[in-house]
Simulated assay, not measured.
Amino acid sequence: MYNHFTMKALFVGGTGTISTAITRKLADRGWELWLLNRGNRHSILPAGVNEITCDINNEEEAAEKIKALSFDVVADFIIMTPQQAERDYRLFKGKTKQYIFISSASAYQKPPSSYRITEGTPHSNPFWEYSRNKIACEEFFYHKYREEGFPITVVLPSHTYDERSVPLGIHGKNGSWQTLKRMLEGKQVIVHGDGTSLWTTTHSSDFAEAFIGLMGNAHALGEMVQITSDEVLTWNQIYGTVASILGVPLKPVHISSEFLHAAGPYDFQGGLIGDKANCAVFDNAKLKSLVPGFTAIIRFDQGARKTIEYMLSHKECQKEDPEFDAWCDRIIDVREKALAELKR
């Protein structure tokens, strides 16, 4: 195990939902941390973080800017395609002792053959191209690990959230605020399915603790590790908790995921049918063996309260989405008319 106080890490990205919490914790703990990104969120960076302003998709420029640098750990938080994985392999081969690829728990088998998910669960998602691309990236990196010893660790997050957005099942292009606004206005809100499927949310602060425990961890090389909370809730409980924090009654309307996708114009095949409509209960035994003492400590009601308080006090988090709002009204109206017709 490396000395965490002298380790040197590079994050590609570093200012997103997952990575911001890790960046803050590493800065507090004295790591030498470098971020390579386009510099769009410079204002949120803690003191002492080194910046490399560059679009990594410009491989030639990125190679030039890191040519004199080497690292104990490199983690890329923004890889979406196998082509980008190949680019990172070219950029960081021989320049890091550990490379962490952030995949996605949505890569796991859909529909699942068992509700309880481990790292041994097959990776196959015919519903979502995003997930299939993540699987292709995993396969590329493991090929390089087996053939050349490329020091890969694959991390699989599930539904991770921070102070800027509440994790909900159904939302439009501007995130969860419009659903919260509907609740505050006393409107009905759509909950997919019957709301009883099991789901796991993880606060970014908990994720960061586990992730840091894997950084520089020799036992994590070549391994695939999922990082989630152990708390499991139904979607009815999730929506009910959010409404309770807002101090309003929940008025849920349950509609099947297949109907929501078929109704258009939103594409819910991937993120809903290929992900959130399925049960997701994670066994984190492997993570806890690699990071002794780790446990996620932020319950959903605690994390959601902090998030909602932050959103209510920060106008930039209140991104209205009138198109999604009108769509919800229309879907609910169609359902009510269909029920009325059936009762005739």
Rank of each mutant, 00 (worst) to 15 (best):
Y2H: 07
H4W: 09
A9K: 01
V12D: 01
G13N: 11
T15N: 09
T20M: 11
A21L: 06
I22V: 15
K25E: 14
K25H: 12
A27D: 14
D28A: 14
R29E: 15
L33K: 05
W34T: 13
S43T: 06
P46D: 08
N50H: 15
E51W: 03
N57T: 08
N58F: 06
I66G: 03
K67T: 13
A68H: 14
S70F: 02
S70I: 02
F71K: 11
D72M: 05
D72R: 07
V74S: 01
V74P: 00
F77K: 03
I78R: 02
T81W: 04
P82D: 11
Q83E: 15
A85W: 04
E86Y: 02
E86I: 13
D88R: 04
Y89Q: 09
K93T: 11
T96L: 02
Q98C: 10
I100L: 13
I102H: 02
S104Y: 04
Y108Q: 05
Y108E: 05
Y108R: 07
Q109Y: 01
Y115S: 08
H123G: 00
S124Y: 14
P126G: 14
S131D: 15
C137W: 02
F141N: 00
Y142N: 10
H143F: 11
H143D: 14
Y145V: 07
E147T: 15
E148F: 06
G149V: 09
F150Q: 01
I152E: 00
L156Q: 09
S158N: 10
D162K: 01
R164I: 04
V166G: 00
G169I: 02
I170Q: 03
H171S: 10
N174S: 09
G175Q: 07
L180H: 01
L184A: 10
E185H: 11
G186C: 12
V189H: 03
V189N: 03
G193H: 02
T201W: 00
T202D: 05
A208M: 12
A208C: 09
M215H: 03
H219C: 04
A220V: 08
L221I: 15
E231F: 05
V232K: 04
T234H: 03
G240F: 03
A243T: 13
G247K: 14
G247W: 08
V248K: 10
D267F: 13
F268D: 00
I273Y: 11
D275R: 10
K276D: 01
A277H: 10
A277Q: 08
V281E: 13
K286R: 15
K286G: 06
L287A: 04
S289Q: 15
P292S: 05
G293K: 05
F294C: 06
T295S: 11
A296P: 10
R299K: 14
A304G: 03
R305G: 00
E309W: 06
K315I: 13
C317T: 12
E320R: 09
E320G: 06
F324I: 09
D325N: 09
C328V: 14
D329G: 08
I331K: 07
I332G: 09
A340Q: 14
